[in-house]
Simulated assay, not measured.
Amino acid sequence: MLKGIHHVAIICSNYEVSKYFYHEVLGLKIIAESYRQERDSYKLDLALPDGSQIELFSFNDRPKRPSYPEAHGLRHLAFCVENIDVIAERLLQQNISVEPIRVDELTKKRYTFFSDPDDLPLELYEQ
Rank of each mutant, 00 (worst) to 15 (best):
D61E: 13
L48Y: 02
K109C: 10
P66I: 02
I30Y: 14
S52L: 03
S41P: 11
P63K: 13
E123N: 09
Y22C: 07
F79I: 02
D40E: 15
D119R: 14
A78W: 07
S58F: 06
L48I: 00
Y42N: 05
L74I: 09
R90H: 08
I101P: 04
P49H: 13
I101K: 00
L44K: 06
N14A: 12
R102T: 05
L106I: 09
Q93T: 04
L74Y: 04
I87Q: 04
G4A: 03
N83S: 05
R65M: 08
P69M: 07
E82N: 11
I11R: 14
L28N: 04
D85T: 01
M1Y: 12
A78R: 05
E89V: 00
N95D: 08
D40A: 07
Y15G: 00
A88T: 08
I30C: 13
E105H: 11
V25Y: 01
R65P: 07
Q37H: 13
A32F: 15
E24F: 09
D50R: 06
I84C: 03
F21A: 00
D61W: 08
R75H: 15
S41I: 01
E105I: 06
E126N: 05
M1W: 10
V86Y: 04
L92P: 03
G27F: 10
E24Q: 14
R62N: 15
A71K: 08
R102Q: 14
E105A: 09
Q93D: 14
Q53W: 13
I5T: 02
L106M: 10
P117G: 09
E89G: 00
M1Q: 08
I87E: 06
E99N: 08
V98K: 08
D61Y: 12
E33W: 01
P63E: 12
C80R: 10
A71Q: 10
S67P: 03
D50S: 10
I11G: 14
D61N: 15
Y15I: 00
F114N: 01
F21D: 01
C80L: 13
H6W: 13
I5H: 02
S58A: 04
F114L: 01
S13Q: 15
L124F: 15
T107D: 12
K3N: 11
